[in-house]
Design a protein around this nucleic acid. Structure first.
Lengths: 356, 356
DNA sequence: CTGTTAGCGCATTCAC
DNA sequence: GTGAATGCGCTAACAG
């Protein structure tokens, strides 16, 4: 099959074969080293030579191979963000994840890194590790909803830098995580409701396969602490486990309110919060006149809901910045200094009222 | 500074230095070639040897270098997703982008690729190109809200595979994009409203710096087509430009409804739709009794709103799948066959009623 | 200021 | 079935 040729090479070759540093060197009548110097802005190149190289670069359309550079330098400039497949599949509704994702991405970009999205279909440590180990990234941020304690040691063993978004391990040597002060969050919300004379409340917490998501344990402890301080007995069935999806949440709320009449709800999960508000709309409950609601999560989201939601919110931008900072420090081998998490904030809006 | 040694190397060295194929070869008393064969599942290795290699791999904790493999093979298994910085910063509210992102990521993962998030702070072609050219990826998906015609030729010139999410260029040779049938979408929505006896409508379209976002032109044409068929004059001030952010949208809707009394709204943008619904809630408008609303965008989102929104929805999963398919075909050099876009769907729910 | 040399880790020839 | 040799594209150390 004949093909039109150009400069002695076929069109296809020209099209496919990207010029290398070698081609540029040849064209500019210098050696690859010099080209490399020019490309990297070394000052020790004679202006004339530099210009010759630059011209060659331009006429050839030379772009340095990123893979070769990575290979040589041992750094990729990439941070892997590892999430469960479920996280991604619920992205549309999961404002909490969106907020983290946004903050992480913006911070990484500002530090000159890019984010590579990795998912593990199964939420167990093995799957996460298998996904991670075959990926190119200078380090990994792991967002896992379940307790993957063994993953930390596998990564440690393999010498792979990582940071978790929560504390999984009780081993005091495991310090590579950023947490939020969930005990305080639960405490603040419950105390506020108790101050408003609500005692018959429900704390709706996300669960995976019936297991309460780890940070919720802390939030529950915070709630109990508040009840303790007020000398009011806390009943175990104040805790309601709900799977995090929209439909299931809606149905579970429905079922709950058919049989019980709490005066206030604390909802630990954004999706369930939206589902609950929708349920109240559909069934004519007035918030806060008939029932008070406190959400946990991004303030921006809750301000865009109707009614404007009273919420306990964390500074996601701050926490995500810390995650990236810590990971970069690990990558660079700088010793880590643990900082206590920033306190959450109680933002009082229109979804809570005094219980008469 | 003394340090505990182990096998003659310091702990730090062991910790830092990852074993290479060479180390494994030495330990297993074979050559790197054999290790490579084992790692790549070649069948021509004697079981005994294979086992020896596997043991060495395990005891050393050897993980093949991904960068070296990329470098050698020339493929990264990464697809770059290039978006404007604004896209990311509005991620929390921008359900349309979330839907695309989710679909793209899931499809890429199912094809064995990962998504690398790239952002360009400026929305012009130069910035996009600069971001792209220095990144490792086998190809790029470009989600840009503005018309970046020259970007296509720059990428073409550089031999970088790409796919756009919309048609930017009028050059018939530029075929690397996936579009949606926006004319049909505008037409369907307007026709439905006209059938419900609404003629005094407003079509709220997103704009960037006063310029209507490109696909909206098609939607507007569709609306005009419907008016034409019904022989009803279409007034230019039926088109209302609104910046896509939550606050601005809310204020603009407020301003609009203070002075005018349309019977129906078509809203081309998810964020503005939520803002409008919030405005109606706050000011006591009943939807659809006082005003009808049609949204454009992900059906899932609109079903989770109250009232349930009538909407024109595209099959994002399908379109995103096509984007990835097309990009992979380009990467592999398979000739592209253009397909017409799937028709959008009019989903009638509770936000539209007959105008009396 | 510029050229020469060497090697990053791996996979793919080609011998044996 | 296994080993030896080679080179992907680039940069850094060392000469000159």
């Amino acid at each position: 099959m004949a093909s039109i040729t150009f400069d002695g090479t076929s069109w296809e070759e020209r099209k496919i074969k990207k010029p290398t540093i070698h081609d540029v060197a040849e064209k500019a009548k210098v050696t690859p080293s010099t080209v490399s110097r020019v490309m990297n802005g070394s000052s020790l190149v004679k202006p004339i030579t530099r210009q010759r190289v630059l011209d060659a670069v331009k006429s050839l359309g030379y772009i340095p191979s990123k893979t070769a550079r990575m290979f040589k330098s041992g750094k990729s400039g990439i941070l892997g963000l590892v999430v469960s497949a479920q996280h991604i599949s619920e992205l549309i509704f999961n404002a909490g994840f969106q907020a983290i994702f946004k903050a992480l991405t913006e911070k990484a970009h500002s530090e000159g890194y890019n984010i590579l999205i990795l998912t593990s279909s199964d939420p167990d440590s093995e799957s996460f590790f298998n996904v991670i180990k075959n990926q190119v990234a200078d380090g990994f941020i792991i967002l896992s909803p379940s307790n993957n304690e063994s993953l930390a040691s596998m990564l440690e063993e393999a010498g792979i830098p990582y940071v978790f978004n929560m504390k999984y391990s009780n081993n005091p040597e495991d310090i590579y995580y950023i947490t939020s002060d969930d005990l305080e969050a639960g405490y603040m919300a419950a105390k506020y409701l108790l101050d408003l004379n609500h005692t018959d409340i429900r704390f709706i917490v996300g669960s995976i396969k019936g297991n309460v998501i780890s940070f919720n344990h802390e939030r529950i402890n915070g709630v109990k602490k508040a009840y303790g301080e007020y000398g009011i007995p806390f009943k175990d069935d104040y805790i309601v486990r709900v799977p995090g999806q929209m439909e299931e949440s809606y149905n579970r709320i429905h079922q709950l309110l058919q049989t019980q009449k709490p005066t206030a709800l604390m909802i630990s999960n954004e999706v369930t919060t939206v589902a609950a508000l929708n349920y109240f709309y559909d069934y004519g409950y007035r918030v806060p006149q008939d029932i008070s609601v406190i959400g946990f999560g991004p303030s921006d989201l809750y301000r865009s809901l109707r009614p404007n939601l009273t919420s306990v919110s964390f500074d996601i931008t701050h926490a995500s910045g810390k995650i990236v900072d810590m990971l970069l420090q690990r990558i660079e081998g700088i010793p880590i200094k643990l900082e206590p998490p920033k306190k959450p904030e109680l933002i009082i809006r229109d979804s809570t009222a005094r219980n008469i």
